[in-house]
Amino acid sequence: MNVSSTIGVLALQGAFAAHLDLLTSLDVVGRPVRLPSDLEGLDGLILPGGESTTMSNLLRSYDLLGPLSEFISAGHPVFGTCAGMILLSDRILDGRADQIALKSIDIVVRRNGYGRQVDSFETDIDVDGFDSAFHAVFIRAPRIEEVGPDVDVLARHEGVPVLVRQGTVMAASFHPELTNDDRIHRLFADMVRDASSSGVTSRDQVR
C-alpha cells in the first residue's frame, strides 16, 4: 500500500501557507506546526522563509527547540528555505547574538547577505539532476559563505551555493514555494519517502 507522507511546515511566522499549498498539490499531507505536539507523527518538516528573529523568539517561548532538534537528529528529513536555512545552519554572520542556529547542516550563512529588498531578485539556476533551469526568487536572501566537506552543493548562483544538502537536511537561499515549479518540493518529498521506507522513524511514529 502506498501510504502518503505527512510533512509539517513550521507555521510560527512567514511563508508557511505557500509551502502547505504546494505540498497539497503534490498529494502529500501538509500540517502546520506551532507547538511541540504538532511534530508527532510527522515524516518530514519544512522550515519556511520569514523573519528568523521572530521565529527564534517563538521557538524558545513555546519550547519547540528541544523537540525540533530531536526530530532532526532522529533522521527525519528537513528542508529550510531562506530564514529556515538560517535556522538550520551551523553559524550565522550578521545575525543577532540570541539568534538560533540548530547546527543541522554544516554551512555558514550571512543574514541578508544579498542585501535589502531593493536588491532582491529572481533568476534561473541549474539544479543537479533537473533537465531544465529552475526559476529562483531571492528575497532579502541569506548568502551561503562556507560549506563543509560533507555538504553537497545542488545549485549555485554566480558561483555561490544556493541549494545544499547534507544527509537528510536540505537548505535553499531562495523560495521554491513562490513559483509554480514543484520540482524541489518533489525532491524533498522523495527524501521524506526514502527516509520513511528505510525505517528511520522516531519513537512516536506509529506504523
Partner: peptide, 23 residues
C-alpha cells in the same frame, strides 16, 4: 535566459509580503 536576473519584479515584490505573513 539562463543568467538574466531581475530586481523589482512583481514576484520579487509580492514575495516580501509573503514573508511577512503571520507576523
Amino acid at each position: 535566459s539562463a543568467t538574466s536576473s531581475s530586481v523589482g519584479s512583481i514576484p520579487v515584490k509580492r514575495g516580501l509580503a509573503e514573508m511577512l505573513k503571520g507576523g
